[in-house]
């Protein structure tokens, strides 16, 4: 069984993002594997471990620094990687999907494809759908449970208010992982050292002969104004809650 995991190299969610110019940011921040993609990596690796056969290949569209993210997921048990190089942190999801599709198809084709349900930088939530459309495969995202049944897989996806949809999908298929699917492992030192020797096949997005329709263009980025210090309510507990209720009712009019 050959499982592909699509991984994005993203700024750590704890990083301070400084907007530079109209639609760029200071890239001198810590980068990590997109956290949602790690759930996909863990599921793929543990499936191959359980079956005692198969291969997991990570595919990433990113800059040369993304090699570090690929090493990190290879330390989690991914066998080898493909890096499709671009300097653009936000290539459109259509060109990203075309590139992932071509790389996976040229590499031999997939029995299963995992990725996160969204990236934590662009938060587009659509690459799984676009890749599935490019490949002509069924797709489901927001997956919190997975079991493999050969010709089909059974997955669960969380819908409103904690209710769950149980879904059966024919393989091959594209699955977008969510929190709750598993607990991604923390690699130990020997696995980290071993990962340094694993293969990363590199190619340039520009050389792949793909056309970007540019359907959705990032026009500008603006920092979100954080609130300043809270107005601290003082007095006895009784006085505090009385003034809070008054403020919420009469000034803010939110209750």
């Amino acid at each position: 069984m050959r499982i592909y995991v699509c991984v994005k190299h993203v700024p750590d969610t704890a990083a301070n993002i400084k907007i530079v110019g109209d639609a760029a940011y200071d890239t001198e921040v810590k980068y990590v594997a997109n956290p949602y993609d790690e759930y996909g990596v863990e599921e793929a690796v543990s499936l191959v471990e359980k079956n005692k056969k198969g291969e997991v290949i990570a595919v990433c569209v990113g800059d040369k620094g993304a090699a570090n993210t690929l090493k990190a997921v290879m330390a989690m048990g991914v066998h080898r990687s493909i890096l499709i190089k671009t300097e653009d942190q936000f290539p459109g999801s259509d060109i990203t999907a075309k590139a992932l599709c071509k790389a996976i198809t040229d590499d031999g084709g997939a029995d299963l494809i995992f990725m996160g349900k969204q990236s934590v930088d662009g938060e587009g939530m659509q690459t799984p759908y676009r890749l599935a459309a490019e490949m002509g495969l069924p797709v489901a995202t927001g997956i919190v449970a997975f079991s493999h049944g050969g010709e089909t897989v059974n997955v669960q996806r969380e819908i409103d208010g904690g209710a769950k949809e149980l879904i059966t999908i024919k393989t091959p298929c594209v699955l977008g992982a969510a929190k709750g699917l598993n607990e991604p492992r923390f690699p130990k030192l020997p696995a980290i050292l071993k990962a340094k020797k694993k293969e990363i096949k590199e190619m340039d997005l520009a050389d792949m002969g793909l056309t970007d329709q540019g359907q959705c263009r990032l026009k500008s980025l603006e920092p979100v104004q954080e609130r300043s210090n809270a107005k601290i309510l003082e007095g006895s507990t009784r006085e505090i809650v009385a003034s809070l209720v008054q403020i919420l009712k009469e000034e803010e009019k939110v209750i």
Binding site: Y25, V120, G122, L218, K219, L221, V224
Partner: peptide, 23 residues
């Protein structure tokens, strides 16, 4: 034909321009 949405876990707001006959 633009939308505003969160980027970087709510730390920035992006304006995206959508092209084509329908978005």
């Amino acid at each position: 034909n633009t939308v505003k949405k969160s980027h970087f876990s709510g730390k920035a707001v992006a304006t995206l321009e959508m092209t084509g006959a329908l978005f």
